[in-house]
Amino acid sequence: MSSIEREIGHDEYDPVGTLALIGLYFLLLVVLWTFTYFVEFLGGDLTVVGTLL
């Protein structure tokens, strides 16, 4: 490809950007899940409970 400025081989490549992005994604997932599961769902009305009769 013409726009390649340099060749980077396997051993000289550390995907720091990827790690950073995916780390942010991880945090986002944890926050969203926690909110949706524990607040929206468990905090909601008419939750179906076990028939312990």
Binding site: P15, G17, T18, A20, I22
Partner: peptide, 21 residues
């Protein structure tokens, strides 16, 4: 997700990209 983004990042760096983002 990791492999694909890392492959894109590899391309970007070969094209002269730098920095964390």
């Amino acid at each position: 997700a990791f492999t694909v983004v890392a492959s894109m990042e590899h391309g970007a760096r070969q094209r002269g990209g730098t920095g964390t983002f």
